[in-house]
Amino acid sequence: MKIDVSLLLFSGIGILIGVLSSMFGFGGGFIVVPILFLFLPDSIPGDYLMHTAIGTSLAVMIINSFNSTLNHAKQGNVLWPVFKKFVGYIAIGSLIGGILAYFVDSNLLRIAFISMLSYVIISSLFKKTFTKTVDEASFQLPSISSSIAVGSSIGFISTMMGIGGSVMTIPYLRGRNMSMLHAVALATPLGLPIATVGAVTYLITGLQVEAMPASTIGFIYIPAFFGFIIGGFIGVPFGRKWAEKIPDQIYSKMYLILLFIVVVMMILG
């Protein structure tokens, strides 16, 4: 597939990624990783397909998360006190996860990705995390110990998987009675340290692999990176506007359904 055709294809997909980024706090990871796993060129060594999909996903997240954060912050959707509780611990967990991911087999990362999303879906159904009516007035800031445990775990696992953290951040905040709009708005800036630390780590470790083609920098596939970014700037504002209009009960169920679709995509891939 030629670079110009790839850029056009990935730009179109990038619009969808931008919409989902600002609507569901994904930062693109849930969509980027499965799509790239399917469409990365044969020039990328098979042992590093998943690494490249994750590395590219994390790089795209930096831009999409920042863009989505600005859009939500302008509307007052981001609860900054909660952000300050988690961001430092997430960054520390991200650094550790990014370093260790280089030593993990690509297929093992794929299996872990599928397993973790399946667990989130099943546990959310049992706990009714996304089907219950929440009373946001009862939301309380987590304790320091809880912030350390949850934040570092989110950072570590998310960077290993290249998923931006929303898969754990949003269910956690939703379980503490936060509305979907505010949980999603928080997931975008909390994804920034994961994306930044993870992308830099995957870039550096990928540079050590001599077999990577010229279309990559480290484990970042350049045509997809720029294509997703171009499309993301178009899609993000639309996603934020729609997120503010969807009733919370419908919004939460849409999130759960989307998780299921992503799992199916990865299994078929």
Score class of each variant (00 low, 15 high):
75 Q>E: 15
235 G>Y: 10
51 H>W: 01
261 I>S: 13
23 M>E: 09
118 S>K: 03
134 V>S: 00
21 S>A: 15
34 P>S: 04
6 S>K: 09
157 I>L: 15
14 G>N: 00
59 A>E: 06
139 F>H: 12
268 L>A: 14
206 G>P: 08
109 L>N: 03
244 E>F: 10
48 Y>N: 12
86 F>L: 14
180 M>N: 10
102 Y>H: 14
146 S>P: 02
213 P>W: 08
12 G>V: 02
48 Y>Q: 07
212 M>E: 01
167 V>K: 09
251 Y>Q: 10
250 I>Y: 12
141 L>H: 04
138 S>L: 13
207 L>W: 00
94 S>A: 15
43 S>N: 14
144 I>N: 13
28 G>H: 07
145 S>C: 11
90 I>Q: 08
122 I>M: 14
129 T>H: 03
241 K>R: 15
247 P>H: 11
59 A>S: 14
114 I>G: 01
57 S>A: 12
231 G>L: 09
119 Y>E: 03
136 E>L: 05
68 S>Q: 03
137 A>K: 15
139 F>P: 07
36 L>C: 03
136 E>Q: 12
139 F>E: 01
111 I>G: 00
250 I>F: 13
210 E>S: 15
13 I>V: 13
234 I>R: 02
86 F>C: 09
267 I>C: 08
40 L>S: 07
131 T>S: 15
233 F>R: 00
252 S>Q: 14
254 M>K: 03
147 S>K: 00
33 V>C: 04
132 K>S: 13
110 R>K: 15
34 P>L: 01
230 I>N: 04
130 F>Y: 04
130 F>K: 10
1 M>E: 12
29 G>E: 01
46 G>Y: 09
103 F>P: 10
103 F>H: 11
268 L>M: 13
121 I>S: 03
